[in-house]
């Protein structure tokens, strides 16, 4: 059994009299540790698919089984519990709480799990160190650049040691240079912890970081192929070092 199994997933919105099929019938299996990119233009249904995978939206029809649990059928409370234990989320607009320091922002998912302040601060500190923001722990989001904010967002997504991390256009608000930094960080963290990452984007440059690219067009899977030339910056760096030690 795959880590994520989606079968016959359909989502229909009603716009007045008209029915809009956001997703027609999606079947998808994603393995543990896989970095999967859902690629598509706006309106292709990619965000809808992600929202349903993350349990933010109920499907019209179909099942979503993550880690053996059919999340389409969970109650609100159990879904919240499921999110606490299994998922991390990275947003395009970072969605940090403006009144909280980055340390507090990162600690939030642990707070919802009922951890004590000291325990979660310790964990959040580790996480911020891992994303290279050790010196920004007391800063508020508006005192940081977009790239820094998104790194706080990444730290927050990974802090609770989830099984799967969802990223919705994580670099949509960032410039090219920062985009590369952030993507590299995300991929590195996933590889380190052997996490599943589901990445939604319309950007082919970003898709190249993924093991697998699912191309969505008008609510249907147009293509689903393994990325033969995975852009793995760390693998490259190891290679670079061995080949050209003094560059």
């Amino acid at each position: 059994m795959s880590f994520i199994e989606v079968t016959g997933l359909r989502k229909v919105y009603r716009l007045g009299q008209e029915k809009v099929y956001a997703l027609k019938s999606i079947n998808l299996r994603i393995e543990k540790g896989e970095i999967c990119c859902i690629l598509g233009t706006s309106g292709s249904g990619k965000s809808t698919l992600l929202n349903m995978l993350a349990g933010l939206e109920k499907p019209t029809r179909g099942d979503i089984i993550i880690n053996g649990v059919n999340i389409a059928k969970l109650s609100e409370r159990k879904l919240a519990k499921f999110r606490q234990e299994n998922t991390g989320f990275i947003f395009q607009a970072y969605n940090l709480i403006p009144q909280l320091s980055s340390l507090e922002n990162v600690g939030m998912p642990l707070m919802f799990k009922g951890w004590s302040r000291r325990k979660r601060d310790k964990e959040a500190k580790k996480m911020l160190e891992a994303v290279g923001l050790k010196s920004r722990m007391k800063h508020r989001p508006n005192q940081m650049s977009g790239g820094q904010q998104q790194r706080v967002g990444i730290a927050r997504a990974f802090v609770a040691k989830p099984n799967v991390v969802f990223a919705d256009e994580p670099t949509g608000n960032l410039d090219t240079k920062t985009t590369a930094d952030v993507m590299e960080l995300m991929v590195k963290m996933c590889r380190e912890h052997n996490l599943t990452l589901i990445l939604v984007t319309h950007d082919l440059d970003i898709a190249k970081y993924a093991d697998r690219i699912v191309h969505l067009i008008d609510g249907d899977i147009h293509s689903d192929e393994v990325n033969k030339a995975v852009y793995d910056p760390f693998a490259d760096k190891v290679d670079d070092k061995s080949k050209q030690p003094a560059s």
Partner: peptide
């Protein structure tokens, strides 16, 4: 509104 939404996505119980 936004803050409440973020809390929910991050796994906050609605009872909280």
């Amino acid at each position: 509104t936004r803050e409440i939404g973020i809390m929910k996505v991050l796994g906050c119980f609605i009872s909280n």
